[in-house]
Design a protein around this nucleic acid. Sequence first.
DNA 1: CCAAAAGTGTTAACCCTACACCCATGT
DNA 2: ACATGGGTGTAGGGTTAACACTTTTGG
Lengths: 284, 284
Amino acid sequence: MAHAVFKYRKGEAYPWVYKYPQTALTADCIVFSFCPDSKQKPAAASNEFAACKKDSCEQGSKSVSCGKESPLKVLLIKRGADPYKDYWAFPGGFVNPEETAQQGALRELQEETGLKAPYLEQFEVFSTPNRDPRQRVVTVPFFVLTTEMNAVAADDATEAQWFPVDDLPSLAFDHKEIFEKAMAALRKSLVFNPLWRYLLPREFTMSQLQALYEAIYCKKYDRRNFARKMLSTGHLNDGGLNRQGLPSRKATIYTFKENSGGCTLRTNNSKFILADFEQITNSL
Amino acid sequence: MAHAVFKYRKGEAYPWVYKYPQTALTADCIVFSFCPDSKQKPAAASNEFAACKKDSCEQGSKSVSCGKESPLKVLLIKRGADPYKDYWAFPGGFVNPEETAQQGALRELQEETGLKAPYLEQFEVFSTPNRDPRQRVVTVPFFVLTTEMNAVAADDATEAQWFPVDDLPSLAFDHKEIFEKAMAALRKSLVFNPLWRYLLPREFTMSQLQALYEAIYCKKYDRRNFARKMLSTGHLNDGGLNRQGLPSRKATIYTFKENSGGCTLRTNNSKFILADFEQITNSL
DNA sequence: CCAAAAGTGTTAACCCTACACCCATGT
DNA sequence: ACATGGGTGTAGGGTTAACACTTTTGG
């Protein structure tokens, strides 16, 4: 099938010649961030919000604060070049010859959005032969977790913007499918690894942690049972401090135990499933 | 870094020319099979067994029946060509331009060992620039589950052989590291997906299922609790039939429920960890 | 005063673990 | 007979899910 699209001509600048057919290698970053920005607005204008969702989809309106959308955000850039020029896509690009895919992902993320990634995890490879119209391109995607929201478009990207995960515009290439796999990979990894620290500020409340879980699993939890379970994991320090700006009681502040990395989500040894979670956990 | 190793010369047959540096793409198969062949021999000669383990490591002796080794086997081929000629390695090879990585993996497995894979799952990408001395090679590994043990070496492989997972010879390339990741991926996937059916014969006993789990997680389980838990998953049909060739009572035969694919390992909804297993399960 | 969020405890059901006895079978 | 592996049941402890009232705070 078509893949070596650039013909060699004598004297052409630096063509790359191989004995066997090759593929281009790219790395993509599906960057998640947690931003429960807009406290839910009065439910009166709910139909308007639905509309704004659609709008933000197609027009990329800047962080519309309409409380219905997911607080879990994903970073997209607008492509500045063909193919799929002006489409939204995940930051990423070609991996250099001397880089691993992971290094390439970090570099491209930095170049296109200025973000550094405190945590990234590779989850699957997309190698369908025609997924890129130019030539064969195999992409290695990473889901990336960060609390840094200041993304600025640069390099190949004309625009960079956070979208709620439940309201993405149409995406370039097969990035829609990649996104679905990224969500699945995040959900799976969160079972084994306490990834909260990469999505929450250093100090946070139990409500925030709960909102994070609810956003990721699209599920509601009982407030008291949730807190009990989280505390039982042994990953949290009770900060003791209180502060808030809401018309309600002040909440306890928690921080992550620094030395609790690489542990399972629960400390007690309820062997719910015969597997040893210790064996499965990533060593963070 | 060095990667385009074949220089183009005028008139050379079909060189592949690209505008940008490329990589070669390979797919590797880490094929697991479950074979509790040798009922444990008398423990008398246990030190001899330890020795035989070492031997089978280095010399590849054919399926030494010394009951101490893991019944979980992995398939290796002996490389017939450089680099790493005569080393043991995983079956695999270059992905053709019109194939996905998965298709390439299945094809290479078939070519080199004659095996068909009822189940395979991709788990990670290895892209370290110098992992192959010839040029940059990115490999997409799959762990493969099968009950078929009749592997015959062909194509690039001079020999094909099953090794117990706890007793592998030294491997070509970075295949040792790939193996470790494959084991981890298998353990992780087994938490969410009932992969037993791909490693056990159509009819099996609870003891066999337990032995499989114990081999995978290197852990012992209580016989009665294990059976209770497995039956509670709803994936098993009580075959009712009995047969065996052992000096003991005949065991109940189980089969897998055909229509129980894509389910979690447990039926009851103990939300042990807040995550919804349904969301995480692969759709098998 | 009121709405909104946070703190707190109890109970009943369920699940998990550990453990002992008996049965069928081949040697 | 006996060793081996298989079938079965139970009691104690722990965990989970469901649930209601009070407190603090800002408006």
